[in-house]
Design a protein around this nucleic acid. Sequence first.
DNA 1: GCGACAG
DNA 2: ATCTTGTCGC
Length: 236
Amino acid sequence: MKAALHEWNLAPKEAIALQKELATRLESDDRIAPVTHIAGMDIGFEDNGDTTRAAVVVLKWDPQTAPDLTLVEHVVHREPTRMPYIPGLLSFREIPAALGAFEQLNILPELIMVDGQGIAHPRRLGIAAHLGLWLDLPTIGVAKSRLYGKHDEVGEVRGDWVPLRAGNETIGAVLRSRDKVKPVFVSPGHRISLETSLDWVMRCLGRTKLPEPTRLADRLASRRDQHVKKPQNLLF
DNA sequence: GCGACAG
DNA sequence: ATCTTGTCGC
């Protein structure tokens, strides 16, 4: 791997310049290998934020049994938190830990869903886009709230969606992933189009708001399910 | 100058 | 993100 601590330990000003440069390398057309495994990634914190916990789950994709996905691998990686949360610079705070988790993975997914924005970002390099470039894998950003862009109100039925725009460009979509529930913000990261991103998010939707990959990664990264281990927690 | 602001 | 219990609704 390209070592370089300087790739992550940057002052805000340098980080912003790097984002602009990296954004020009993103591929917005689909360049995806036949999908058999989909990963989900999310970050959580412990020790009052001093420890960053990265969680990655890998689900088996079987068109025959879809939308039922099977959890086939999961990894949790902890390391000291390196910097505070700064809107627009989230990837510099969370990706280093995420890479630690991906390094321990045995199964290489063809697609990754990340808890955060793809190109729906002021400089078009949200955490999903940044991670996709680094791993050179297709990524989709699935955020629970908006960071950037404007949009009209979205219908209340599952599947309804409206474009998320920035000036003339469409940078993502506001998707009603579950009836009457707060919508999610879907935006392509690397090597995937918005249309295909929406297709995959829809295909991975159970009866919950979040698609299975990020829903499970979310639970693994979160502190809550950490102690309880009874019912469906048998998954972990 | 005044808000907005992923996780 | 995280601190935290119960509670309203399908």
